[in-house]
Amino acid sequence: MGATTTAPPAGALPPPPAPAPTPQPGRRGRGRARLARLDSTASPYLYIAPFFLLFIVTGLFPLVYTGWVALHDWDQIMGKGEFVGMENYVDVLTGRGFWKALANTVSIFVLSSVPQIMAALLIAALLDRNLRARTFWRMGVLLPYVVAPVAVALIFNNLFADRFGLINLLLETVGLDPVRWHSDRLASHVAIATMVNFRWTGYNALILLAAMQAIPRDLYEQAAIDGANAWRQFWSVTVPMLRPTIVFVVITSTIGGLQIFDEPKMYDSFGRGGADQQWQTLTIYLYELGWTRADFGMASAVAVLLFGIIVVFGVVNFLLTRRIAHDDGGRR
């Protein structure tokens, strides 16, 4: 998109529709008119209905059913047992496992999402410049996303192995102490967050880039004439204009980050989050309750709690990002 291109004038509308045919007098005519009116009011809903029907079957129903399961003693194989009310929740909330898993999840989430979105924003801003071989660079940042997560985990397992891992070998050659990637709690979180960032930074960068491309270039011209340097332009033009997209990226990475499963699952060969729960996230904890211990009731209680936590985090993040981008240059 060249710098001279301008947005279409705000007042432009699609050509007005052809005038509706005047209703014919008589019974048949009136019926047809009613049908036409019904069509124009009802059919949009019908068109989107398949999505919602599908959502009710595959999304809403399991959601509600999970809440129902959580109120029972429920074995994976034997199915429904006694109604136990809130007992599963009490067991989960008074156990040590849940809180440690929650702390791990939040820690990994913060270590991944924050640097990830910052880096994505920066990469997008760089890609937005006039680079040679633009498409090459743009596709390049998406490459990690295309690599299968299992392959990523294999590679990172070799990098982060405690004893013979590449990173520790490098640290030792420069005379530093090796990091205990699997024993130390925080170190394992950093390693897992690195895997997540490797995979998602480029993806988010492309989403932000797409939004950046839609910012009218004359805004930058005006800013430049007003004497704003590149940094000032970035903060006062780009970021405020990206607000809805940033909110979208933050919300999706919040949901994804709190549900993180693949990376911690494949971080060692057991997939249980470490002997001392070092990197056991809530989803892994849930999986262990439901599939190793066959206690679907408790697993469902964790699922419901996780749902609530994600909603809370999502709302908080939504409000935060709205405020950050609202400060200067926001239009609403």
Partner: peptide, 15 residues
């Protein structure tokens, strides 16, 4: 001190 089936354990066979 190698966890069996870990990648360190597998590598250790070469040392």
């Amino acid at each position: 001190g190698l966890g069996q089936w870990s990648s360190d354990w597998s590598s250790a066979f070469q040392e």
